[in-house]
Amino acid sequence: MLHLVLFTVFGLICVAGAINLLVQTHPINSALSLVVVMGSLAVEYLLLGAEFVAAVQVIVYAGAIMVLFVFVIMLLNAGAEERSKGSIVALMLGVPGMLVGSILTAWVLVKHSGTQPVALGALPGHPKDIAQLLFHDFLLPFEVTSILVLIAIMGAVVLASRPESIEKTKKEN
């Protein structure tokens, strides 16, 4: 009972944060709304018995990635968003489209997918279960993903460094 109440409350907070993210015109307010979404999602994971995923959600998404978002917004000193003709078109098409899409998805999931509610904690959520999955059952995909992330980091470094400094290091070598 308590679980259901908390689940509903944080689900509503999550949706409210997501709507606020779109409505706010200043990027920093939008970023903070996204933090709220991440945080309430973490609580939902906790209520589903996935305490490790919940903690990682807060540490990685709310704590690290969103801090970098806020950092970049602060650094660029981005101002408030401006309304243009394109934004009206986006509003006219986007809102009905989103409504139709989400209702369709919900209808398909509820009626036709054959999904069933699972008992609390029936899914692997304990750190040991997750470690077993990550470092044993899915070791190869895990390592491949880490190499992918490494390549992305190197690409970001190359893009961020100025061309003349690369030329300079080439000459020095």
């Binding site: 903070l32 709310a62 704590g63 801090v67």
Partner: peptide, 13 residues
């Protein structure tokens, strides 16, 4: 660790 990582927002904001 999670709570301290959220604490960064206080300083940044």
């Amino acid at each position: 660790l999670g709570i301290t990582s959220i604490g960064v927002y206080g300083v940044a904001l």
